[in-house]
Structures are given as structure tokens and as C-alpha cells.
């Protein structure tokens, strides 16, 4: 019985039906007057009871999105954001016991809304940036890379090195100035108008100590780090970038990635 009840509850959510009602009783005049000697179910009726739980579940998921995406809330207002958050929550179940992990597909969901590209073309990208900030905040800290060991490798071994990016590291790009939009949406930021013509953003997000940082990158470094995120070796990543940017400064780029603390380890691929 327990298994059946829980399965039906879950199925109802996916199919938007109310089969679960058959398991719960409720008040209501009819039942109360026909029950003798004492009514078994008084108080909330079944439909009301089920509705309270459904509303509470969806509202809880939606509320968690307002915590993960505070800039998005600011950009369109709580009321409009809640409409989107409710729609997401109704369609994207949570698979983790922790709400900290919810809302990972929110940006993709926003992109799937046809009117979004016309009305708020930058909005899904801002959401993608906020998710990286959120995830970086809770990620484990990386350790320092052992550069001595790296420098001892032969050049041929070095070319087969795959860098491990720090656990909080993430990349996002947009044709809109999403970093600037994010900055002016922070509490205490000056009132500033952001022009959408400011240009594209290529960003890395990572946590340094307790602070989540958003770093602007060149298009070529963005591509290079993206290739490293995929697990490509140094030589593979390099040739991929040189295909598009033949003036790519490899030495300076690696140095920058190290200085910023993007890289925390490496292994040599066989």
C-alpha cells in the first residue's frame, strides 16, 4: 500500500492528474451527515488537502530558484520571476535531497521559451552566469598545483598534460555584457544603465578563498580553457585554439590561468 501511494503521488506530478485523491478522505457536509455514529473525516477535505501539498511543493522549489538567481529576480521583478520559477518547478523535478542542487537547467529552460529571444535576449545568459556563481560558492577548494613537478616533465610529456581546473571553475559566454549586468544588479551598486551594445562577454567564474570571482577573458583564452575543461591535452587544446586564433599567446595564457588560480593539478595522458 505504501509503495502504491507514493508511486501514484509521484505519477500524478508527472502527468498532472489527481489519482492520489482515492487514497485520502476528507470532510464535507455529505460525508459528515451520512456517517454514523461519528464522522471519520472532518476538517480539510481531500481535494483541499492535496492542493495544499501540491502548492507547497511547487512554491518551495520556486522559492529555491529565487535564492539561486537573485540577479534574475532583480532584472524582471519577483512577480514575473515567480511565474517562470513556477513553470520550471512544475516541469523539472528535483533529483537531489538538497535544494542547493536544484535549478541547474534553468538557463536552458529560459532559452526554450520562444518569446525570450525577443523580449529579454540576455536573460538566459545572466541565469547561466548566476548558476556558475552559485555552484562556485559551494564547490570544494582546489589545492595549489605542483609546478615543480610540471617543470620537470620533458617537453613531449608536457604536451600530453591534461590540466585539472579548480572545482569551482566554470565558463560562460554571451553576446551581451552579462558581467556588467550582474555587477550593476548587486546590492549597493550604483544606478547605472548598461547598454546591450557593450559587446560580448567571455567569462570564467571561480572561487578564490571565500570570494566568488567573475573574470573577463579574451575569446582565445576562453576557447583554450574550454578545451581543457573537456579534458583535452595541452597540445590538443593548443592546436584547436591555433586553428581559430593563429596569434594565440600560449605562454602568457597558461601563466594567467595559473596566476588566477584556475588550475590546481594535472596528469599526463598515456
Amino acid at each position: 500500500m505504501l509503495k502504491e501511494i507514493q508511486q501514484v503521488f509521484a505519477d500524478d506530478f508527472s502527468s498532472n492528474s489527481s489519482e492520489f485523491l482515492k487514497y485520502i478522505g476528507g470532510g464535507g457536509c455529505e460525508e459528515m451527515s451520512s456517517c454514523s455514529p461519528a464522522p471519520k473525516f472532518i476538517g480539510l477535505d481531500a481535494i483541499q488537502g492535496l492542493e495544499i501539498y501540491r502548492e507547497s511543493i511547487i512554491a518551495g522549489l520556486a522559492r529555491s530558484l529565487t535564492e539561486i538567481y537573485p540577479v534574475c529576480v532583480k532584472l524582471i521583478g519577483l512577480e514575473s520571476f515567480s511565474l517562470l520559477a513556477y513553470r520550471y518547478s512544475e516541469n523539472y523535478p528535483s533529483s537531489s535531497p538538497s535544494l542547493i542542487n536544484y535549478g541547474q537547467k534553468f538557463s536552458a529552460f529560459l532559452n526554450s521559451i520562444p518569446q525570450m529571444g525577443v523580449a529579454l535576449p540576455y536573460f538566459p545568459d545572466v541565469a547561466a552566469l548566476e548558476l556558475l556563481v552559485h555552484n562556485a560558492y559551494y564547490a570544494s577548494s582546489g589545492s595549489d598545483i605542483d609546478l615543480f613537478r610540471f617543470n620537470q616533465l620533458t617537453p613531449s610529456k608536457q604536451s600530453k598534460v591534461v590540466f585539472d581546473l579548480t572545482p569551482s571553475f566554470g565558463l560562460v559566454s554571451s553576446e551581451f555584457p552579462i558581467k556588467h549586468i550582474w555587477e550593476v544588479s548587486q546590492d549597493g551598486a550604483d544606478d547605472e544603465i548598461v547598454s546591450l551594445d557593450e559587446g560580448a562577454d567571455f567569462l570564467a567564474v571561480h572561487r578564490f578563498g571565500n570570494e566568488v570571482r567573475i573574470e573577463s577573458l579574451s575569446a582565445e583564452l576562453y576557447l583554450f580553457l574550454g578545451e581543457m575543461c573537456k579534458g583535452l591535452t595541452l597540445s590538443e587544446a593548443l592546436s584547436s585554439v591555433l586553428n581559430e586564433f593563429n596569434e594565440f599567446d600560449f605562454q602568457a595564457s597558461i601563466q594567467l590561468a595559473l596566476d588566477k588560480g584556475f588550475i590546481y593539478g594535472f596528469h599526463v595522458q598515456n
Partner: peptide
């Protein structure tokens, strides 16, 4: 209570039926 079913988390404290089966479980 139960907060999950079919590997889906509802993040809400759902009550159990007050039965011997629930107690044993």
C-alpha cells in the same frame, strides 16, 4: 514523513498513512 518517491524529491514533509505497514517500514 517521506520527502521523495520514485527518485524524485518533493522537498516537502509528506505524511504517512498511520498503519502497521508504515510503522514496520
Amino acid at each position: 514523513c517521506w520527502v521523495s518517491a520514485d527518485k524524485r524529491y518533493f522537498h516537502d514533509l509528506l505524511p504517512l498513512p498511520y498503519t502497521q505497514e508504515s510503522i514496520d517500514h
